[in-house]
Amino acid sequence: MPTRAVPPRPAADPATDARRAVMALAAAARVDELAPVEALAGPGVTDLRVPEIGLVMVRGRAGGSGRPFNLGEATVTRAAVRLAAGETGFAHVLGRDRLKARRAALLDALWAREALRPTLEAEILAPLAARLDAARRAEAEKAAATRVDFFTLVRGDD
């Protein structure tokens, strides 16, 4: 079977992969699902980058795997914070929700504290992942119900 022409992603270390997975969950979250980070972050947070709405150019590829082209833009909100203890956190999330971007940045900063990870998992990440998985599965099951097999009918004229 021919291989896809999509280039392999640059190899990332496990720590970066874990951090990216947290970022992916935060990007897919509703703003209220990230609310616990406010209390966990505590006082003394510096907004290195006050939440800011902007654009990213979304790129596609000619034919699916050929040369990239600019498909159109998407709104993105970004934020960066530093906790009182010095950990920095970054966020870039689709949409225009400043509060969500700031909370996602706080989550990224808190993730740097290894001792806090079980708390983050239990309070935020696990319920969020469960909701997203259920939503994805529900969509996939609706799609599966529309799976179709076309039969080619034999022609009668030999």
Binding site: R4, V6, E52, I53, G54, L55, V56, M57, V58, R59, G60, R61, G64, S65, P68, N70, L71, E73, A74, T75, V76, R78, H92
Partner: peptide, 13 residues
């Protein structure tokens, strides 16, 4: 709005 950059080419596969 300011543009922050471009995405990685999306993978429809």
């Amino acid at each position: 709005l300011p543009r922050f950059g471009a995405t990685e080419p999306l993978d429809t596969g």
